[in-house]
Design a protein around this nucleic acid. Structure first.
Lengths: 230, 230
DNA sequence: ACAATGTAATAGTAATACTATTAACTTTGA
DNA sequence: TCAAAGTTAATAGTATTACTATTACATTGT
């Protein structure tokens, strides 16, 4: 990543945490170790008790930072989407050609994640795997509407809207820019998951990432109105 | 639905249940009421204890049928996909034109669900909502690979393959038939969810279902190779 | 009639999410 | 300088949930 991005701080909705984990050493260790643990054992098996043991503190200390483990998941996924957004905005900022810009955007949003040295306590590769496996659990809940009103999903929504806007910039008459944008973002996570667990349900594999598929998908629908039978 | 479908029994992998819920009155009530309860309170809040109370039996009776609530969810989602598959196969069976057949298939797979009187103890409209909200939780687990080996997801996989085959029948040179098929099935659930909870992230709403969007998406990519910059 | 099988009830255990309270440090300001 | 105030961490819980072991009752087929 570029030097300029080094000092950028990902802003998370303050309602998601009780005490900002970036504000203390223990907080950073909570983030660092929870990413590793959720990556290793999955969100269901992960508990604050286990985390407390691992950071050589205890359960209740973690509760000073996050109300419950669901909020911690919201923090992690928000951070991930915010981090992706920075990369996107930074990389495509000066691009004039809307087609090139959209192509670059899809590349950034669908590729496999690489380590970013700017955030030493966060393993972005593990975090990407967490998002692939757990992201939908962050909003497939009974509380989704109230949490949405509280702005817990704003970063993700902003990212979809950015993509949607770029789609419109390429074809202003296309009526499904929001649906296409959300399909690409969610679909990318899904294809990555299938590649790891249901290889027969995807054409993506180790040396064939989802990126070219989604590029073809998006630009086909933007360049054609298909012929259909009655 | 057509008369012929009335007596068709949806076949579920026998490893998913301990005792076949179709084999007894209590079993059918377990299915019937669990659908209503999960629809009403969500999968997280749903417990066998609450279900036992509701069916005027108790917790342990339910454990005679399902090992745990995750297995019950697998049963319900499997039933749903099996039910969809029957509708698909029955409706498109005699169709000769691959384009018309694919179009009809996408319509069936992406439309909103209507009540099916053939299965009196199953509310298909509620079940469809459950699938929209909970389906991904059935496979986003640590146990996905072993459960997959045990064939817990075969019906869903067969459905994706049917769609994939129909895509290939329209354009034999298209290299992403499996990815496109899985994108449509999962994407349809996602668009239905967004329509209910994140309306700004989709162009689908009450009087504009995902169906025309997905038809345009699929036939565009099958009819065009888009032009891209270098 | 009665054994075999199916169904239900009781009464638990273990693990998890979460909380109340106290103890120990840090900071700050006169 | 040093005690008060504020911050952070540790201890020791409770309530709920998922799940199980055991026993009792009901139904069915020969």
């Amino acid at each position: 990543m570029d030097e300029l991005l080094h000092s950028v701080r990902i802003q998370i909705n303050e309602k998601i945490y009780i005490k900002d984990p970036e504000s203390s050493n223990l907080g950073k260790r909570i983030i660092e170790e929870s990413i590793i643990m959720i990556y290793e054992m999955g969100f269901e098996s992960f508990t604050f008790k286990k985390l407390g043991k691992r950071i050589k503190s205890n359960e209740s200390s973690v509760y000073r930072y996050f109300e419950n483990k669901h909020k911690l998941l919201l923090y992690l996924t928000s951070w991930y989407w915010g981090w992706l957004e920075y990369q996107l905005v930074f990389t495509t900022n000066g691009m004039a050609d809307p087609v090139k810009k959209l192509k670059k955007t899809i590349e950034i949003l669908t590729k496999s994640t690489e380590e970013d040295s700017a955030y030493s306590h966060i393993n972005e590769v593990f975090l990407n795997k967490i998002v692939i496996n757990e992201n939908s659990k962050s909003y497939l809940t009974q509380e989704v509407d109230t949490e949405n009103k509280d702005g817990y999903f704003t970063i993700y929504q902003r990212l979809v809207k950015r993509l949607s806007t770029m789609i419109t910039a390429v074809n202003n008459d296309f009526p499904y820019s929001a649906s296409l944008a959300s399909t690409v973002l969610e679909g990318s996570l899904h294809q990555h998951f299938l590649k790891d667990h249901f290889s027969s349900l995807t054409d993506c594999h180790e040396n064939n990432h989802p990126t070219p598929y989604f590029i073809q998908l998006v630009f086909s629908i933007l360049q054609t109105t298909p012929k259909l039978p009655q």
